[in-house]
Amino acid sequence: MQGTRYILSEYVEQAMAQALYDKLEDSTFSGRIPVCKGVVAFGTTLHQCEDELRSTLEDWILVGLKFGHTLPVIRGIDLNKEPTREPMDAL
C-alpha cells in the first residue's frame, strides 16, 4: 500500500538516521543514537553493528512504551501521545 504510514517504523528509521558509528582499536565497531539515551551496540563489522543497534533501539522503544517512559520526539514523531479511543458504537 503506497501512502500508508507506519509511525513506529518511521520513528525507528529517523532515529537510525541519527546513528553515530566509531571504529574501535580492535577493528570492531560501536554505534549509538545520541538522542536515545543508552542505545548503544557493538559489532565485528559495521553492518553487524548497525543491525545490533536497530535491535537495541526497537527493544528500548518497546520497554519505554511499556513502562511509560518519555521517549524523545524525533523529526516531529511523538510516541508519547495518549492513544485516542473511539466509542464502540462508532465502529
Score class of each variant (00 low, 15 high):
residue 80 N to H: 14
residue 80 N to K: 15
residue 56 T to Y: 03
residue 84 T to Y: 09
residue 21 Y to D: 01
residue 32 R to Y: 05
residue 33 I to G: 01
residue 56 T to S: 11
residue 67 F to D: 13
residue 74 I to P: 10
residue 77 I to S: 10
residue 57 L to T: 03
residue 21 Y to N: 02
residue 58 E to A: 15
residue 40 V to L: 01
residue 57 L to P: 05
residue 83 P to H: 09
residue 20 L to H: 06
residue 32 R to K: 11
residue 48 Q to K: 03
residue 54 R to W: 06
residue 91 L to Q: 02
residue 55 S to I: 03
residue 49 C to A: 02
residue 58 E to N: 11
residue 17 A to H: 10
residue 43 G to Q: 01
residue 26 D to E: 13
residue 25 E to Y: 09
residue 44 T to W: 06
residue 80 N to P: 15
residue 70 T to M: 13
residue 25 E to F: 08
residue 74 I to W: 14
residue 79 L to K: 13
residue 42 F to Q: 05
residue 39 V to C: 00
residue 86 E to A: 09
residue 69 H to W: 12
residue 40 V to T: 01
residue 22 D to A: 12
residue 74 I to N: 11
residue 43 G to H: 00
residue 43 G to M: 00
residue 77 I to C: 12
residue 29 F to Y: 14
residue 37 K to P: 03
residue 41 A to H: 00
residue 66 K to P: 07
residue 78 D to F: 11
residue 41 A to F: 00
residue 75 R to K: 15
residue 45 T to E: 02
residue 69 H to N: 13
residue 32 R to A: 06
residue 36 C to T: 03
residue 38 G to P: 03
residue 38 G to D: 03
residue 25 E to C: 07
residue 86 E to G: 04
residue 26 D to Y: 11
residue 37 K to M: 07
residue 82 E to T: 14
residue 56 T to K: 05
residue 23 K to Q: 15
residue 33 I to H: 01
residue 77 I to Q: 10
residue 64 G to S: 06
residue 27 S to I: 09
residue 26 D to K: 12
residue 73 V to K: 15
residue 78 D to R: 12
residue 18 Q to H: 08
residue 88 M to A: 06
residue 75 R to F: 11
residue 24 L to C: 10
residue 20 L to E: 09
residue 65 L to F: 04
residue 50 E to G: 05
residue 57 L to Q: 04
residue 21 Y to M: 03
residue 57 L to Y: 05
residue 65 L to Q: 08
residue 41 A to M: 00
residue 40 V to F: 02
residue 23 K to L: 12
residue 86 E to K: 08
residue 60 W to C: 05
residue 32 R to E: 09
residue 88 M to E: 06
residue 35 V to C: 04
residue 85 R to W: 09
residue 43 G to D: 01
